[in-house]
């Protein structure tokens, strides 16, 4: 009944995926600082290792060895639960991303995906909404008014932008006809990327992705000028590290999701006509996938150091009176288009 090799294969895959995710998330913190320095004509961190390449390691060790203070009036259990939930939700999203085409190893077909859920898109959507809990619980448990305020901001912002995100996803599902991420990727070979069918949907989605990851220009929950440090004001040590790290993981995952949904995932144009062996094709696919993801990560960082932050009411107005009607129009147009076909 148990396929021993299957288990081994999946275990290797899971650890590889988690490792790569954490690695990229760690190094995107460095990239963030280096790029910020570049944009501001500074040098940036350069002390830890050559060109500061060991900086993430140093940061991680610092977080690990600092004392994790739990405020006296905080709810101890929830205070610890909050960052853990954030981290968990961020990491769980890796499970349905198809990282590349199938490999042929030792006579077995190895799918480079932890699991191909038939409702993968809904799974991702559920995780996005689940991510709200980490912020809410942590902020409430801190028993600090600034934390609570930014918690309320964060959660209402996430809920508002989830709507527009869901609507743009429904329009995407109308064109692809499937909820499985793998099938969505396979459905856009060569240059037939979904961005061409759903340009407006993609625009809405990327704005919502920025809002869901609390990145500038939507980083109101962590707005230092108004709310001290945001929902993690009271946090320190590794728990704070979890919150900060979860943000970078979310950034990475949402880049991967956007690539899969709208930019063809691991699909590479012209590769099919070269007649290469399948494993090589798969390797190229993985590399190309990561190239696209890195470009999105660059976009995230670029925007952060370029745009100012919204005011809170502007943010809400953009969500409710801008994006949601736009998403509904997009959905209707897509539906009509599909009906005519």
């Amino acid at each position: 009944m148990f396929d021993f090799f299957f288990i081994i294969e999946k275990l290797i895959l899971i650890s590889a995926v988690l490792g790569i995710t954490l690695f990229i998330a760690a190094y995107s913190t460095l990239a963030e600082r280096k790029l910020a320095a570049f944009f501001q004509d500074r040098i940036g961190p350069d002390r830890a290792g050559p060109f500061g390449l060991l900086q993430p390691l140093a940061d991680g060790l610092k977080f690990l060895f600092k004392e994790a203070i739990i405020p006296a009036k905080a709810d101890r259990f929830l205070f610890v639960l909050g960052p853990s939930l954030s981290m968990l939700a961020a990491c769980m999203a890796c499970a349905v991303i198809p990282w590349g085409p199938d490999l042929m190893l030792f006579g077995r077909t190895v799918a480079l995906q932890i699991t191909d859920l038939s409702v993968g898109l809904l799974y991702l959507f559920g995780l996005v909404s689940f991510g709200v809990y980490g912020v809410m619980i942590g902020g409430w448990a801190s028993n600090n008014k600034y934390s609570l305020l930014s918690t309320i901001r964060a959660s209402s912002q996430m809920i508002s932008y989830e709507l527009a995100m869901g609507l743009s996803l429904i329009a995407l599902v109308l064109t692809t006809g499937t909820l499985s991420i793998r099938e969505i990727v396979l459905g856009q070979p060569g240059w037939h990327w979904n961005i061409l069918a759903q340009p407006l949907g993609f625009m809405i989605f990327i704005v919502c992705a920025f809002a869901e990851t609390n990145r500038v220009p939507f980083d109101l929950p962590e707005c230092e000028t108004e709310l001290v440090g945001g929902y993690h004001t009271e946090y320190s040590g590794m728990q704070l590290g979890f919150y900060l790290f979860a943000e970078y993981i979310n950034m990475f995952i949402s880049s991967a999701v956007m690539t899969c949904l709208y930019f063809g995932g691991f699909q590479m144009p012209f590769i099919a006509s070269l007649g290469l062996p399948q494993n090589v094709v798969a390797l190229f696919g993985v590399v190309f996938f990561f190239v696209k993801i890195l470009m999105f990560l660059f976009l995230f960082i670029w925007i952060r150091w370029t745009l100012p932050r919204f005011r809170y009411d502007q943010l809400m107005r953009l969500g409710w009176t801008g994006l949601i009607p736009l998403a509904i129009i997009n959905l209707l147009a897509t539906a009509v288009f599909q009906l005519c076909n």
Partner: peptide, 24 residues
Amino acid sequence: LFLCAVHIVVYAGAIMVLFLFVIM
């Protein structure tokens, strides 16, 4: 599977957040 996903999106994702919100 589909019902499960919808169940989580609706209950855990929307309804319970509202409860948490109100109680906070």
